[in-house]
Design a protein around this nucleic acid. Structure first.
Lengths: 113, 113
DNA sequence: GTGATAGTCAAGCAGTTGCTTAAGTGTCAG
DNA sequence: CTGACACTTAAGCAACTGCTTGACTATCAC
């Protein structure tokens, strides 16, 4: 059973690199082996492995080895966790702006009485 | 006019630190000065300034100095950019799962004919 | 002016990241 | 059994982070 409580730290960290995001983009179209992920990336295989390790640490992808090939796939639950955190901050700010607007409108009403 | 094309790199990087996320959380409840942001953070003011610089580099917050106090506020547009990137990957993967499920169901139908 | 306030600049330092190359380990195909 | 394949480990290195302290610089309040 996989330890399924990744921190936002590791999650956002994992997404903060273009090579890793390109791996996630590839995986969002379906599972892939390590060398498939490496192919478009112009870096050595060990480098790709290190990126993969960070993606796994962030809980964003999981992988499983069968025979000599390791197959990687995305974990959408964790992605939606990050999405949710951002959404909360954004909407909180936007609602504040709305309330502020309403308040200012009311003030102006009062003044013009 | 502020240069408003921050990279996903700097954006996610900015969100990958608990101190910076706590600053964003504080700012999502309304603008604040640098020392207000620093108060709950148990670190020196220069350290907070450095975090602030990364948040600005990621386009997540903007700040403006009036007199001797710098006031910081959130930029919701950039947050929704990050949110959107994540959402696209996640839904792409989930749709793929749906199509795969449909395909397998169809296969099974064929077999049982 | 004097002093407190709010922020800024700069140097320095331990720890992490992002890459490399070189040398393995385990599987599979013939 | 032998070679090719798909990783995996380890060592090493330049660059970047995250923090510190110490020294300034500009307000603002009196």
């Amino acid at each position: 059973m996989p330890n399924q409580q990744p921190s936002l730290d590791l999650m956002f960290q994992a997404l903060a690199d273009p090579a890793r995001r390109s791996m996630v983009e590839r995986l969002s179209r379906g599972p892939a082996s390590v060398s498939e992920l490496a192919r478009p990336l112009d870096m050595s295989l060990p480098a790709v492995m290190q990126h993969l390790a960070m993606l796994e640490a962030g809980g964003i992808v999981a992988s499983e080895k069968v025979g000599r090939v390791r197959t990687c796939r995305i974990n959408p639950d964790v992605l939606s966790l990050a999405e949710h955190w951002i959404n909360q901050r954004r909407t909180q700010w936007e609602q504040r702006l709305d309330r502020l607007g309403a308040f200012l409108a009311a003030e102006e009403d009062g003044e013009t009485k």
